[in-house]
Amino acid sequence: MNIVWFWTLGVMLTAYAVLDGYDLGVGALHLWLARGNEERRVVLNAIGPVWNGNEVWLIAAGGMMVVSFPKVYASGFSGFYLALMVVLWLLILRGVSIEFRGQIDHELWRAFWDAGFCIGSLLIALLLGVALGNVLRGLPIRADGYFQGTFTLLLNPYSLLTGILSLVVLTWHGCNYLRVKTEVDLLLRARCWSARLWSVVVLLVIAATAATLTLGPAMGRNFRLHPLALVFPLFTLIGLIGGFLCRREHDRGAFWSSTAVIVGLLTSAATTAFPNLLGSTLDPSYSLTIYNAASSPHALRVSFIANIVGMIAVVVYSTYVHRTFSGKVKLGDHSY
């Protein structure tokens, strides 16, 4: 059951990264991609009806972590206190930027929220990567299971690298999403950006993989023990190749390629960390694992059943919502 919950959280966070990932990416890129109010509105309406639902995956994943691995939630969240508060502020900034931009018809008003949307999205994408990097690298967790994560500790070269990787991959993903949702000029520009970003993604994936393997001998261990898990990095590889093949046309293919890259990267990261959730750099025995940080077996079982039923319903109706709003964006009366 502990292993099932580990992968459930993995799936939740991956789904969040894929779904909210594209709207974060759209936010990070739109200042450079979309010109003029009309194009900016197209971009906003591409994500308008869905961004809120996408963000709910993060909230649901947080709630699931409380119930399944409360000690990890306690340690990780309190340890990352300041960083998480900054993320919260950025989430607020970003959310209101999307919703309030179109409320007043004035150039300066729109310019302000466009910038807020961009900065919020960009920094969130970066910080999520930084957090993941620190989790993989290990944290100075003490015997009581807690640590104090100051910015000087968190912003180390390795996690900055994973942060930049996260930012670039999500931007590429968002760019591919816009290729699916837009037409004419915007589409051509998005294709151009997508091809550029692809090459940066390739470089960063190679750099990050190398950096991760040199972190310590334990990093590749799970892949040696379970060679089947190599299918995860294979996803990334296929996604990268797909991204190259689809760089000029096949916009949907490009979107699925970046999706595969994100899925591959996150599942590989999860495999690398397993069974640790938060590894300790002070003493491996202080690490919080899926066993010593979990709720009681009964709690794990019950909450799994309670949530999986709901998740199936969620997948069904989020698919319906995405389908309803599929296709190229058309601006109407009720648009952003």
Partner: peptide
């Protein structure tokens, strides 16, 4: 977030119990 960031000893103490309905709200 504050359950974890500010009230971590509370989350650690009872997350498996009071936390049951928290993700259900989202889901």
């Amino acid at each position: 977030f504050e359950f974890g960031t500010n009230w971590s000893r509370f989350s650690s103490f009872g997350g498996g119990v009071f936390g049951q309905t928290l993700p259900m709200e989202g889901v």
